[in-house]
Design a protein around this nucleic acid. Sequence first.
DNA 1: GCCAATTATTAACCTGTTAAATTTAAGGTG
DNA 2: CACCTTAAATTTAACAGGTTAATAATTGGC
Lengths: 413, 413
Amino acid sequence: MHRPGGARAGAARRVLDLLRAEGVISRVELAERTGLTAATITNTVRPLVADGLVGEVGRDPQPGRGQPRRLLRLVAGAWHAVGIQVDRTSATIVVLDFAGARVATANLPGTGGRGPDATVAALADHVDSLLDRAGVARSRVLGVGLVTHGPQDLERGVLLTAQPGPEWLEYPLTGTLAERLGLPVLLENDANAAALGEMWAGAPRTDTFGLIYMASGIGGGVIVDGEVYRGRASNAVEIGHVALAGGSRPCVCGGAGCAQAEAAPHTVVARALGDRVLAERFAVTGARDGTLADFDRIARAWRAGDADAAAMLERSAHWIGQAAVTLVNLFDLDTVVLAGPAFAVAGTLYRDHVAAALERRALGRALSGPRVHVSSNAGSAAAHGGALHVLRTMPVGAPPRLPAAEPARGGAP
Amino acid sequence: MHRPGGARAGAARRVLDLLRAEGVISRVELAERTGLTAATITNTVRPLVADGLVGEVGRDPQPGRGQPRRLLRLVAGAWHAVGIQVDRTSATIVVLDFAGARVATANLPGTGGRGPDATVAALADHVDSLLDRAGVARSRVLGVGLVTHGPQDLERGVLLTAQPGPEWLEYPLTGTLAERLGLPVLLENDANAAALGEMWAGAPRTDTFGLIYMASGIGGGVIVDGEVYRGRASNAVEIGHVALAGGSRPCVCGGAGCAQAEAAPHTVVARALGDRVLAERFAVTGARDGTLADFDRIARAWRAGDADAAAMLERSAHWIGQAAVTLVNLFDLDTVVLAGPAFAVAGTLYRDHVAAALERRALGRALSGPRVHVSSNAGSAAAHGGALHVLRTMPVGAPPRLPAAEPARGGAP
DNA sequence: GCCAATTATTAACCTGTTAAATTTAAGGTG
DNA sequence: CACCTTAAATTTAACAGGTTAATAATTGGC
């Protein structure tokens, strides 16, 4: 377990995590919250300050006597990280500073159609220009978190699925992108990435919870004690393919009654398309890459008070609720988060249904029934989490000194 | 994470685990299998030998040149542990020596009916007499692993379920038993205990697998990297209450279509009782505490070639298969073990059904489809695992010297 | 009897830890 | 104002567990 050089493990990692979550915090609070001793905090923080990763920013204006707590915070500009989420039909890129704040975002429609070579090249170009626009020096980027859907081999950095096309299977995804960008690239699952993001952004600060991610497909992620549950080979929580009571629709996985087949946006849209009147009222197009847009139209119709839209969404939410019950009972959780673009518009409807299902069926929750939340940034949570994954995983040493003149990009210091 | 005194953690624990699993093993193999350095092995083994927990037993007769490997093994008599499994209708007690071998077993029918006070007293009496009969000195017993079904609070050592009766809820179970016996008592779930037992006894030596435990009820356990997955509060893997596609029977948990309600022995027996002809042919009694006995009769009829019995069991196995698929997909496993008295007779039928279901529906298992095994000692696996849990969890130092004369109980040294 | 191969042990060191001083800076008090 | 009290931060020393690199021990083969 010897980790040489700059890879900060154990104490340092927990301190940085907490610093990132809280923004500004004193050493004493760091000790309390991490469970480490004050001595350990001192010894851990000292080199972080020396390396320019952490800075002191005044003192805690608390009334009592005694030496006031000196407040610490991450030096935002010390490092940056890039998060890229590639969906079937689009990509989202975010750039975070070392404190975890978003300094740039880009949305690229229509990414999946071309082959992997073209797609990776396009992504790299966009990362380049996004970093330039944000004025982030390449030498200060810690790495890239690449977030995709479906089974992956994290070690080798390849997808284990033939979607969007067979040429993606076993394509050296992280390798190619890393070489092109000259930066390390970490692969991560969309649901896990969103869950990591939720650890910081999430309203209810908890370190053990489950997450259901719904975009084109449905995925799940579980965080236990602040770490992603990975199972045997990091392809855990395939909640899109749990068989549900009452389900019957055939699924791409070969089974029937899967959550994916019953509840995913595609199914909701297909139902609308099946009824001429509804299809017209919701203006669903049925376009190959427009499932999520169609789904959003239905969701907006619901928000405008359309009863038929409500019925269709409730039918989907019913299945998500059932899946959540299974997730909670198997992993012993007390919080469930809903994330992903599909929850962006109708998140509250899903939340209420899931909460009701858990209320009825979750076991062992004698006290305090499970809580359900919709992710605050349901749309880009996964890309954000991918970048956070890089920030907390990659070894950090002192950031390199920048060359003499940094192109000043206006604004306050 | 400082563990004072005799509590051996990290290296020592891994060495003891491996020693217990392999029986006899050299230092070199110990280093290879644990991933620790040869030096660490030396430093770890030395105090274990000094404390009389590990002994050298000759050398490895390998052909090549060089210094031969010296073989090590646990000193069986150094310590002992007791495992008690309490079911609704009976209890099993086992005594293991330090090497994990069973030195005594007892089966007590009809335990649940009386209140907790009377039950605990009876259990303690039986432990006492079992230890006496086996000639195990009380001072050399490390502790007792108490194994029960359903939700528990491991910290406080109480059950969180009102079964078998409301007076069991919050009854100070481990406290009372520990005081009465003068030994530490650890509470554990039956499925987790059986899974722990399987780690050693199991044919396929793997450290990441799931287990389905079926007695009166259905429970689940997951082991990842040799450790029990516990979740938020150690009540994980409630697989008895996953909702299954096509299920509809109401369940005690308030839901419907639960694995428990569809597949448990009680349901199979109830179906037989519903048909006068079958009930007579299988000689099911429908007695309140005879569910498992009735179930065994049906299983034996299946083994004797009865087609109706086969149909009934296959119906149950169908649900177990579906539950196994959910377990494997959510926890990302490649091995499933079936354990518990319900699999004692018809284990192979269930195994075949579960294997077929996983073949069809398990994801991400591109290579090497998941394997399914029936526990070798399906009946007493849980009690055995409870005792093993004590052996590997309790701090071990040098065993106390026994008083001058130990009552010799005949037999070779 | 010596060499080569292999196993086991020792010594030095590195990281992170705890427990017990020690320092620091307010705030109160004579 | 000088001095004490107190809360908090920090340093120190000892130690725990693990690592590498060098050393010692044991044997088979020539």
